[in-house]
């Protein structure tokens, strides 16, 4: 299934344009989704940290550590939340979800008033950790660790689905465009053969009558061109 040469350039241009749209859309989408999902996960973590810090401040102030532990155990079941720990006003970790113990990297750095930590924990992975102050930070801080691997996977999955869809649309568009181009260029190809056969002295196989006749009966430019070639050949003869 060949396409006329002068249409091949047009076709290439169309494909290039579509590819450009696909790539630019994907880039913008990847950037937007990555930013929005990352923000979403961080905001979720922050909301959890604030919820624990605000609603359970009584447990912390009253040193009801078992009840506090029970609360954080429930939050750590949330997908993507890898760990939660609570530091009291004196800087002691009073509840946590680590097994077999508080990682050395955290034990070495958890006492500042930072809102976020970017952590890499040996044997566990990389985490974005957000914190919330308990009673304005006076009674301590709640730390919630999100697994970067988890939300990277979520982002990749969301992006992958869109890129997959765009790729399918691109491939279908290419096939449809190619088909349409073929439909446009095929009569011209036949007319070219017809012209070579009737007007030049070179040996050219004539289009079959059942192919030529519908062309000559068309009312569009192709039909007009065909009839003109036929007239020219008769006058020349």
């Amino acid at each position: 299934m060949r396409i006329a040469r002068f249409y091949q350039k047009t076709l290439f241009g169309v494909f290039a344009l579509m590819g450009l749209i696909l790539v630019s859309t994907s880039i913008i989408y990847v950037h937007t989704v990555d930013r929005q999902l990352t923000d979403y996960f961080l905001n979720s973590s922050r909301a959890i940290a604030r919820a624990i810090a605000n609603s359970d401040s009584d447990l912390i102030v009253n040193q009801n550590y078992p009840a506090l532990q029970s609360v954080i155990d429930q939050y750590v079941e949330t997908p993507g939340i890898s760990y939660v720990f609570v530091v009291d006003g004196e800087g002691t970790i009073i509840a946590h979800t680590f097994v077999p113990g508080v990682p050395d990297e955290i034990a070495a750095d958890y006492k500042s008033d930072k809102d976020t930590y970017d952590r890499t924990l040996a044997g566990m992975g990389s985490f974005s950790e957000v914190t919330a102050g308990i009673i304005g930070g006076q009674a301590g801080r709640v730390h919630v660790g999100m697994d970067k691997g988890y939300f990277a996977l979520q982002v990749q999955t969301a992006i992958g689905k869109v890129v997959y869809l765009l790729t399918i649309i691109f491939v279908v568009s290419v096939l449809v465009t190619y088909g349409l181009m073929y439909q446009v260029s095929r009569p011209l190809h036949l007319l070219g053969n017809f012209a070579w056969h009737t007007l030049s002295g070179e040996k050219h196989s004539a289009p079959a009558a059942n192919q030529l006749q519908p062309l000559l009966e068309r009312t569009d430019e192709v039909g007009e061109l065909g009839r003109l070639i036929r007239k020219a050949s008769r006058e020349g003869a």
Partner: peptide, 11 residues
């Protein structure tokens, strides 16, 4: 035990 029981004993 990393739960409320363990935390009770720890406390």
């Amino acid at each position: 035990q990393a739960d409320a029981y363990g935390r009770t004993g720890w406390a």
